[in-house]
Amino acid sequence: MTTSAINNLINLLAKLPGLGPRSARRAVLTLIRRREVLLWPLAKALAEVAETVCTCKTCGNVDSCDPCYLCADQGRDQALICVVENVSDLWALERTRAYKGLYHVLGGTLSALDGITPEDLNIPHLVERAADPAVLEVILATSLTVDGQTTAHYITDKLHASCVKISGLAHGVPVGGELDYLDDGTLHAALKQRKPL
C-alpha cells in the first residue's frame, strides 16, 4: 500500500458524518494495525453492501433484496402503513419493537427553501398503496417541524379520497422528562394533546 492509497482512504473516511481528517487518520491507523480482524472484514462488508444493497420498490427502505425484509414479512400487520421521512426514522421505529406494521419512506420533507416539491417525494406511490382495500390506517410519523408537519398535512389531503384512517404520532413530554426542563413548544403541544386519565 502506497502513501497515496492511505491518503485516499483517509480523505474518503473524513467525508463520513461524525468524522474529520483527524479521526479519519486514527481510524485508518487502527485498520492497518488490525488488518486481519478489522480491515479485511470491513473491505469485504463494504464490497458486499455496494454490490447488493438496493432501495425497496414498495416502501423505499434499503435492503439487500427487493422487496425488503419488512415488506416480505407476512407476519407484519398489512393493514397499517407508517410514513417516515427517511430510512433512519424507520430504523428508529424498528428499534422500539413497538410497531409491527409496514412502512413507507418519503425520502425527505417538503421544503420551500431547498426547493423540494411533492414531485420529489415518494407520495404518489403512497397514495397507490393506501388505495389497497387491505390497508386500514396510515400513521404519519413525520418530524414535529414546520417542514415535517407541512408534509403531513399535504399527505392528509392527498389521502382524503382513499377511505383509510389517518393518524399522527403524539407529541409532548418525553419519557423521563421533567417539566421544568422542557421548552415552551413541547409543553404547549403536551397541554394541547392532554388526555383523560
Partner: peptide, 27 residues
Amino acid sequence: LESTVTSEVLHEPMRLAALCSACAILD
C-alpha cells in the same frame, strides 16, 4: 427564544400554510 408560534399552528394546516407562505415571501 422570546415566543414561539410554531407549536400553536403546527396542527392547523391552514394557519401553518399561511405562516410558511409569509416567511417564504419575506425570505
